[in-house]
Write a protein that binds this DNA or RNA. Structure first.
Lengths: 132, 132
DNA sequence: CCGTATCCAATTAGATACTG
DNA sequence: CAGTATCTAATTGGATACGG
């Protein structure tokens, strides 16, 4: 289960969820890990602009909350791989409508064909550079 | 349309949405206004713990982003009523799955009958005190 | 009643350098 | 490669008092 940061202090589910995804770069990390496994350096490149310190601390928090899995390979040079846990996959799914809202009403003015399912939260699920 | 705070700086829809709902009390304000019109003092009581200054500034930002409507009645004593715009209603709807995720996986461990629709983002839509 | 103004505290993130 | 350590900067929110 996820580590509850402020036990008993939540007013509703979103309040609680916001506590988990509240870091400045967290949803971008979630995005980067969607359906893929990444090494630290890869993530640093994908989430462009984030510093090592902040990326590391966000990853640690997401790990504590049960959202990402950290697999350490005892090799030299060292290798660590990050991926979403099942809970993280669920979270990413729950984020989808919000992402659709943001794309429709904040970013793009009127685009998106009406017939098309706009449930997706990612513009290009497996695009390499995250900066679109 | 919503005022874009960081024009062109978004990496994806969620990133953009987070910019709109990012304030500490914003989702609680959204919650309080769901399906209801509130005066300033009412909101202050509903969103318990928020200070006047922060509530006022969050309301102003939500207004700038086209999420809440502010209706001023030129009376004495002054009366101002806040409500959700259609865009705010949509946002609240998009927040629902995230709220369900938070309730299920952060707050309540295993509750929720499986057959029940867990789409709702609010525990008690028209409850008076927000602190549950 | 509905806010503003001011000042301060706390949290968060960035820059840079360094290590196993 | 995958981080940690420090130190600093910026942002955000809180307390309190006052104004139209």
């Amino acid at each position: 289960m996820a580590t509850v940061r402020r036990p008993g202090a939540y007013h509703c589910g979103i309040d609680a969820a916001m506590d988990v995804i509240g870091g400045k770069w967290k949803v971008l990390i979630l995005w980067a890990l969607d359906g893929r496994t990444c090494r630290f350096g890869e993530l640093r490149r994908l989430v462009s602009g984030v510093t090592e310190k902040v990326l590391a601390s966000h990853l640690r928090e997401l790990e504590e909350d049960g959202i990402v899995h950290r697999e350490v390979y005892d090799e030299v040079p060292p290798r660590v791989e990050y991926s979403l846990t099942p809970l993280g996959v669920l979270l990413n799914g729950a984020l989808a409508p919000l992402g659709a809202w943001g794309r429709e009403h904040v970013i793009g003015g009127a685009a998106e064909a009406p017939g098309e399912a706009v449930g997706g939260h990612f513009p290009i699920p497996s695009a390499r550079p995250l900066t679109m």
